[in-house]
């Protein structure tokens, strides 16, 4: 099976103290420590496991500048066979649709049976996977936490509200957005890192992808972030009162009502 996994280089929340920028419309991105988006890492692991079972190749693709090379290389050290970097100044500040446009163009350069994205990344739209599927006119399942490969189709589990689970059949080719917890992503070892140390990763710009620069990047963005702030701590906490037993009973009711307990 030929699998394309879309990955993104994002600020590592475990490594950075996130501050707002002076304009107040984004976080301060200079000098942050970056790593691969956590959801994408699960998607790559899932793709590697599928290929281990049924054969094929895993290709990872990202939109970013030359620094984004490091996340492609890392996922290749993990076990993906190919990497593709989509790099052009015109791609900067793309909205979800712009990113999906670029990924579609990259996907159409190959012949993939399955395209995976992480369920979401740092920008918080959780929209790229769905848009990509729609643009490519492919079936789509979001928040996937289980994949089984069948003949020309997949059986996928989806996490739905209330902690419930549904199982779907989906025809190939298709797009899946992958939820964390679907597997346990492997660690990267020295051997894998050495193997990718000298590899040239192919790069495509707007012309190479055949994409009109006016439709992507800041120029083509139809959604723009106008504000970014940390909400003030409000009065949201509910204090439970009563004896310990009463508090426990109330707590269990709340957890059940919110899907934490069945």
């Amino acid at each position: 099976m030929e699998i394309l996994v879309c990955v993104k280089r994002v600020p590592d929340t475990a490594e950075n103290e996130i501050e707002l920028n002076s304009a107040g419309n984004d976080i301060e991105r200079d000098d942050l420590v970056y790593s691969v988006n956590e959801w994408d890492n699960y998607a790559v692991e899932e793709a590697i496991q599928i290929v281990d079972k049924v054969g094929g190749t895993v290709t990872v693709v990202t939109v970013g500048d030359e620094d984004a090379d490091e996340v492609l290389r890392r996922e290749m050290a993990m076990g993906a066979q190919n990497g593709i970097l989509l790099n052009d100044e015109a791609f900067e500040d793309s909205d979800a649709m712009g990113i999906a446009t670029l990924l579609k163009a990259a996907a159409e350069k190959g012949k993939y049976d399955l395209i995976m994205t992480g369920a979401q990344a740092d920008a918080g739209y959780a929209a790229v996977g769905g848009m990509l599927a729609a643009m490519m006119d492919l079936p789509y399942a979001s928040l996937v936490n289980m994949v089984e490969v069948g003949d020309g189709k997949l059986t996928v589990g989806r996490e739905i509200e209330g902690g419930n689970q549904e199982i779907n059949e989906i025809e190939l080719p298709c797009v899946l957005s992958i939820q964390t917890g679907i597997n346990e992503p492997r660690y990267v070892g020295i051997k894998g890192i050495r193997q990718v140390s000298g590899i040239e990763i192919p790069e495509f710009d707007a012309a190479g992808l055949g994409v009109d620069p006016a439709t992507v990047g800041a120029a083509g963005a139809k959604t723009k972030r106008v504000d970014y702030f940390i909400p003030e701590t409000g009065e949201g906490a509910e204090m439970l009162t009563g004896s310990t037993e009463e508090i426990i009973a109330k707590l269990i009711d709340i957890m059940k009502a919110n899907g934490g307990l069945k």
Partner: peptide
């Protein structure tokens, strides 16, 4: 020869 800067950084990160 394998241990260029990128490789060194990746090794420390991993």
């Amino acid at each position: 020869a394998d241990f260029n800067k990128k490789t060194c950084d990746m090794i420390i990160t991993e």
